[in-house]
Simulated assay, not measured.
Amino acid sequence: MYRTLKETGELFKVLSDPTRIKILLSLAEEEKCVHEIARETSSKLSNISHHLRRMKDKNLVDYRREGRHKYYRVKDEHIINILKQGVAHAEER
């Protein structure tokens, strides 16, 4: 049980960053390469890459290679549901 609670806490730590939330909401629509995500979020490529690496390490996103490009996607529907519920809760205030 402790391991589950610890991993849940780690999940919420990763989700506590507004840029990561923007990235995940963007990826909830469709898979995208780093350049597309950077353009949509008005962020630097290096910043987006850092966030994606952190989210990949925590099993929130995955990617596929196409030539030299990596196309990222949200790993599973649970993450999208958590984000949508969080946004809905914040909008109710």
Rank of each mutant, 00 (worst) to 15 (best):
Glu91Pro: 01
Leu25Ile: 05
Asn47Ser: 12
Leu15His: 06
Ile48Asp: 01
Arg65Gly: 06
Leu15Ala: 06
Glu66Tyr: 07
Val34Asn: 04
Asp17Glu: 09
Ser46Lys: 05
Glu10Tyr: 15
Leu60Asp: 00
Asn59His: 09
Tyr71Cys: 02
Lys44Leu: 05
Ala90His: 07
Asp57His: 06
Val61Ala: 02
Ile80Asp: 04
Glu92Asn: 13
Glu40Ile: 08
Leu15Arg: 06
Pro18Lys: 10
Ala88Arg: 14
His69Ala: 09
Lys70Tyr: 05
Cys33Lys: 05
Glu66His: 08
Glu92Pro: 01
Ile48Ser: 02
Leu60Met: 10
Leu25Ser: 06
Ala88Ile: 08
Leu27Pro: 02
Ala88Trp: 05
Ile48Val: 14
Ile80Ala: 04
Arg73Phe: 10
Lys58Pro: 01
Ser43Ala: 08
Ala88Thr: 10
Leu24Cys: 12
Leu25Asn: 03
Glu40Pro: 04
Ser26Thr: 13
Val14Gly: 05
Gly9Phe: 09
Lys22Ser: 08
Ile21Gln: 12
Gln85Phe: 06
Glu31Cys: 03
Met1Glu: 10
Thr19Gln: 10
Lys58Val: 03
Asp76Phe: 09
Arg54Gly: 01
Asp76His: 13
Gln85Leu: 11
Ala88Gln: 12
Glu91Gln: 10
Arg93Ser: 13
Arg93Cys: 09
Lys75Ser: 07
Arg73Gln: 08
Lys13Pro: 00
Ile82Gln: 10
Val87Asn: 05
Ala90Leu: 12
Glu30Arg: 15
Leu5Arg: 15
Leu45Thr: 02
His89Asn: 14
Arg73Pro: 00
Leu11Asn: 13
Glu10His: 15
Ser42Ala: 13
Val61Lys: 04
Lys84Ala: 11
Gly9Arg: 11
Arg73Ala: 08
Pro18His: 08
Met55Gly: 00
Val14Asp: 03
Asn59Trp: 05
Val34Tyr: 01
Ser16Ile: 11
Ile48Arg: 03
Leu52Phe: 00
Ile82Asp: 09
Asp17Gln: 06
Leu27Val: 08
Gln85Ala: 13
Lys6Ile: 15
Glu29Gln: 11
Ile82Phe: 13
Asp62Ser: 12
Tyr63Phe: 12
Met1Arg: 11
Gly9Glu: 10
Ile23Cys: 04
Met55Gln: 00
Ala28Met: 03
His78Asn: 13
Ile82Lys: 10
Asn81Gly: 00
Ala88Cys: 07
Lys56Met: 06
His78Thr: 11
Ala28Ile: 02
Arg54Lys: 14
Lys32Arg: 14
Ser49Gly: 14
Ser16Val: 11
Glu36Cys: 01
Glu10Arg: 15
Glu29Lys: 14
Leu45Gln: 05
Ser16Thr: 12
Leu52Asp: 02
Asn47Trp: 04
Arg20Tyr: 05
Glu7Val: 13
Thr4Cys: 13
Lys22Thr: 04
Val14Cys: 09
Lys13Leu: 15
Glu92His: 12
Ala28Val: 02
Leu11Pro: 10
Glu40Trp: 02
Thr4Arg: 14
Ala38Pro: 00
Asp76Gly: 11
Thr19Leu: 13
Arg73Cys: 06
Lys6Asn: 12
Asn81Met: 09
His89Pro: 04
Glu66Pro: 00
His78Trp: 09
Thr8Trp: 12
Pro18Tyr: 07
Gln85Asp: 09
Asp57Ala: 11
His69Trp: 07
Ser16Pro: 12
His89Cys: 13
His69Phe: 06
Gly67Thr: 08
Ile21Trp: 03
Asn81Tyr: 08
Lys70Glu: 09
Leu45Glu: 02
Leu5Pro: 07
Leu15Lys: 05
Glu77Ser: 09
Ser46Asn: 08
Arg54Tyr: 01
Tyr72Gln: 01
